[in-house]
Every structure is written in structure tokens, then in C-alpha cells.
Design a protein around this nucleic acid. Structure first.
Lengths: 330, 330
DNA sequence: CTGAAAGCGCTAACAT
DNA sequence: ATGTTAGCGCTTTCAG
């Protein structure tokens, strides 16, 4: 099967390439007769325009690159799904890139994505080497992380969420609360969740204990770290884990050690991806508005691409989901 | 910031466009001096070649489209991650498309993917309208579903997996076993897991009870269906759920009804995605070799694109993961 | 209303 | 070892 060109259609329809192009793009003025002829010819040949050639001219690909740490993580999987859907509705297709916490891979990606292969970029990864696209005048939107002053950020209300979580534990009688969270290059200097945790604990005159793990820490090591948490704080009666995967891990470690949840120990996570809620329905958590975050990010990106004014930062509200890992308030 | 062309670099380096092109592609013979000059010029201008123009010439995009039901599902999220990684290593980028169980969306996608915007396609969705790409001479590989005689399939050993699951329950004393699975256009005529379940049950002279849900059944309705399962079969003592999300759902419904797991009721799921194992570590399941499935699919696609011979069907082995939802064998 | 011709930015013969 | 020239398939002035 040889490649069909505009010319082949033109020849069959007995018109010029220009006319066929006009019919395809519904541009200029055509007689109905010509339109019919051309469309018949296209159908007969099963002709599909060569998108690449079209793009060469318009210099647009209608492709949006999205960088995530890993779609295998339920939160980012769901985020990706909503991003993809929102972009699809605006006529864009999605070039996905799983950074897999590998800085090298992410950098290669960024450099490849330049040269106008994508019309825009949505970034949700941690370990960005900003220099790579420092000079790119590519519209970019970041999700939940500050990249550069001129890149708009869409995030959920991390401070309010962490406050909700911490207060939920305190209200239910916890005295010995530990906060676990993941450190990464984009939050080490300004972690809203940690700040809220510290502030709420201070308000209640409680000691604020914190355990951190690196963003690229492998699962086994992460478990070891949490085992140590229980070794060092056997009297812990409340845990606020900054993501649901860690919360679930802590929950099962605690049960294995004989803690009764929520009687001895209460646990609350963070994220609230749909799949997580279905898999671990008993887990209390802070639900981020994943769909809205995606929708806003796409809207912002579209505005940027259209050269419109965009807010620097967009914060969306979160929700507390109680569950059997928390006591019921009397 | 205006657009940089090969010509700008050539001018700065004091050579011709061709030479710059040769330097970029490391083709032909160049003097080291020229190479240095050109690379300095590129660096100074922060020049990135226009990928679209390159593609117009080669008629290849190095883009592979992948169609999945939803990356928000841990199994497909993980599959996507591995596919992406394997493709990236071969120099391809991934155009992702979440069918979201919407036939209409999937069809629009398929038609857009034609016109040589992607060099190949990996399909893991259920509701394909094959006619759409009937005429496309696009290399395609399917994952876990038969699409057409000339499209190679990569799948895990569904028959062996279901056999393992069913026998695990029987070995542990289950007498009243129910199999739940999802029906979709690609398995209604030949569901290996259901067949294995039927066969093993028959071998043991046990009644084979089956509950099905449609692939596009919303979560709430799915839960209702499972509630009915318990209403109609209160004496159920073993459940083999054909995916882990359903298994987890059944587990929590059962606990809510007062079943002790595994004393009264044993449950085993299917899929074994990493995230699921971390979130619900107690769940016994059949682990599909997701990474290998992805690797093979990519290898097959690469072979197809290279015009090489490829097997029609590739079956990969699965593993039983026991867990606290099964009794321990004495 | 339609066609001829000039590019879009790059690569690959074909010179030199 | 390097430059000149002719396209890749399409869109778009500019004529008619």
C-alpha cells in the first residue's frame, strides 16, 4: 500500500491540490459540486491527510507533554486520566512521560520535548532540572510544585488539608502523633503540609514528631524506616501520613505489631485517589480534588497558549474523609 | 524569541545548513574543527532542531499510541508505566489514550491516530471497533485480547492463573465457591479464566457459581451486585474475583457483614499490580507479570515495525501470591 | 470559484 | 570535507 498524497486525490477528482486542501480545511469558497467530487475521491481512496506535513506548516502539533513521577501510582494515574480527558476535549493529544524518579530520564525527556514537538507542557514531577527549559518559550503549567516564577501552579490546599488531618487526630484524643512525609527537591524548602502539622501541634502544646523518606526511596527501605518508627515510638497513638500508600503500609505494619486500629492507634492518609478509596475503604484520608486540579491545569495551559493572562497560583479545596482508621467522634 | 532554524546556526558557525545537519545527525565525514564550531553555535543559540521538519522527511514520528481502558486503574497504570519505559529505551515516545470505556472516544482516537501520526499502536482496550483501522497498515500489538488474526497478542496465562486460584481455594477446604468476573466485548466468547474455573470445579464435583459485571459497570452498581451475591449465597466460603479491585471490594463488604476472613470466607483476587499489593498486602492474588507483558509487547511491536516475523500469540506465566485472605495450609 | 507557485525546516543526493 | 540543490506533503498568497 503506497502512500497517498493530496495530489492523488486531486488527480482522481480532476481538480488541483489547492482545491482538495480547501475542501479538507473548509476554507475559502467552494462550489458544492467540487466539494462532493473531492470528498468522493477521498473516500474512494481512503485518504488521510499527512498530519506531519500539516504540522510543518502550522508549527503546531496539538500534542501536550505531561511529566509525572509514575502513572503506576494511583494518584498520578488518576491525575493523568483526568488531564488526558480534559486535553482530549480541547483537541489535544497527550505525550506521556513517566519520570520514574530518574533525573536522567526526565532531563532527556525535557530536551526531546523541545524543538516544538509539543505545544505545551504540564509538569507534576519532583526532580526537575529547570535549566533545561529555562530558555524555552514553551507554555508550561505545574501541578502542586513551584518551578519558576513565571510558571503557574495548580495545587490543592495543602496547608488546610494537613490542618484538617492533624486536628482530626487531636480531636479524637491522640497525644503522641507522628507525621510522615516524603521529601523531594520541590518541597524541602516549603512544605505546606509539614508547616500546618507543626503549627497545629504547637497550638495544642503537643510535640510534633516527624519522619521523612526520600522521594526516590525504594519500597523495602521505606518499610524499614517505618518499622524503626514503631521501634522508636511504641506509644504512638496517631499517624498522619502524607500519602495514602504510606498510610496503608503503616496500617498493615501496625496491625502486624498488634496495634488495634483505631483503638490504640489512629491513622489518616493523604491524596484520596479513587482506586485507593476502593482498595482500602477503611482508611481515613484527605481527598485532593484530582479532577478539578486536572481541569484547571488544562484550562490554564490553554490560556497560556492563547497568550492570555493567567494567575500565578491556583489553590483548590480539599476534603476530610473519615474512616474506620479514626475513632468516631462522640 | 523568534524561531531558530538550521540556517541561523549555519550562519553563526560560518558553514552550510547541510554541515550543521550532518553534525546533528553525526552523518558523513566531518572535521573535528567543524563539529566544534557548529556545536558551539548551537549551544550559544540554544538551538533545538525542529522535529516536525525532520519527521516530514523521514515520514516517521517515533510516536507509539497506546490505548488503555484507564490509567487510573492500578493494573493499567503499571502496564502503561512499563510500556512507556520500554518504548523510551528504544527511542519512542508514547501517545496515551484513555478510552474510559467510552466507545465513541476510542473510535475518535483511532481515527486520529491514523494519517501517520504514530508509527505503531499497542492496544489494551476492550471495546474496539476494528473496522476503523481495518485499512491501516499500521503495526499493532494487542495485550490480553484478540483483535484480529494478523494482530499478535501478548497475554499472561489466564487459564493457569484461574486454575491456581480455584485450586488454592479448594485445597483450603472451600466448598461453596463463587467466581466473579467482568464481561467485555473481547472475552465474552472465550474467557480462559472462566473456563479454568469451570473445569477445576467440575473436576472436584463442586458447583461452579459465577457472578458477572459488565466492563463499564459503575462502582456503585458493582457494589450493589456484590451485595446481592452475599444475599443470595450467605453460605459462600470462597471467592475468586477476577480482578483485585473487585476482590478488595468483596473483602470489605464481607467484613462489614460479619464474615471472618479467612476463617469463614476465603478470598483471592487477580492482577497483582504493585500498588494494589502495597495497599492491600493481606489480599491473596494471582500476579500477572506486568513488566514482562509490557516488554514483550514492545519487542513484538518493534519487530513488526521492522517487518520481522512475529508469533501470533505469546503467553507468559503467572504466580500465586498467598496472603491472609487465604488460610495457611497445614 | 479555482489554480500555479512559493515556501514551512530539514535531509539526502549530487557535486566539488 | 563541505556546499548546492531538490524535494518531503501540505497550506497559502497571489493571479486569473
Amino acid at each position: 500500500m503506497k502512500k497517498l498524497k493530496l495530489e492523488d486525490v486531486a488527480a482522481l477528482a480532476g481538480v488541483s491540490k489547492t482545491t482538495v486542501s480547501r475542501v479538507i480545511n473548509r476554507r475559502g469558497s467552494l462550489s458544492q459540486k467540487t466539494i462532493d467530487k473531492v470528498e468522493a475521491a477521498m473516500a474512494q481512496l481512503n485518504y488521510h491527510p499527512n498530519v506531519i506535513a500539516q504540522q510543518l506548516h502550522t508549527q503546531r502539533t496539538n500534542l501536550i507533554g505531561i511529566l509525572v513521577p509514575s502513572v503506576a501510582n494511583p494518584f498520578f494515574g488518576e491525575l493523568t486520566m483526568y488531564l488526558e480527558d480534559a486535553l482530549f476535549q480541547r483537541g489535544y493529544k497527550v505525550l506521556i512521560s513517566d519520570a520514574l524518579n530518574q533525573t536522567a530520564k526526565e532531563e532527556r525527556y525535557l530536551s526531546q520535548l523541545m524543538g516544538h514537538q509539543v505545544d505545551g507542557l504540564i509538569i507534576a514531577t519532583h526532580n526537575n532540572k529547570l535549566e533545561e527549559y529555562q530558555h524555552a518559550n514553551l507554555p508550561i503549567v505545574a501541578i502542586d510544585r513551584f518551578l519558576r516564577a513565571d510558571i503557574p501552579v495548580v495545587a490543592s490546599d495543602n496547608y488546610a488539608g494537613a490542618k484538617l488531618a492533624t486536628e482530626a487526630l487531636i480531636q479524637r484524643g491522640c497525644q503522641h502523633i507522628i507525621h510522615t512525609y516524603t521529601t523531594n527537591p520541590s518541597n524541602w524548602h516549603d512544605n505546606q503540609r509539614e508547616k500546618a502539622f507543626q503549627a497545629v501541634m504547637a497550638d495544642h502544646h503537643l510535640p510534633a514528631i516527624t519522619y521523612t523518606t526520600a522521594f526516590d526511596c525504594p519500597p523495602a527501605e521505606r518499610t524499614a524506616r517505618f518499622e524503626r518508627l514503631f521501634d522508636e515510638h511504641p506509644a504512638v497513638d496517631g499517624i498522619f501520613a502524607s500519602n495514602d500508600l504510606d498510610a496503608a503500609r503503616l496500617l498493615s505494619l501496625a496491625r502486624a505489631r498488634g496495634y488495634r486500629v483505631p483503638a490504640d492507634l489512629q491513622i489518616i492518609g493523604y491524596d484520596g485517589a479513587q482506586a485507593t478509596q476502593e482498595l482500602v475503604p477503611e482508611l481515613a484520608t484527605i481527598i485532593q480534588p484530582i479532577e478539578q486540579m486536572a481541569t484547571y491545569a488544562v484550562k490554564l495551559l490553554a490560556d497560556r497558549m492563547a497568550g492570555k493572562f493567567t494567575p500565578t497560583s491556583t489553590v483548590l479545596p480539599v476534603n476530610l474523609k473519615t474512616g474506620q482508621t479514626l475513632k468516631t467522634l462522640s
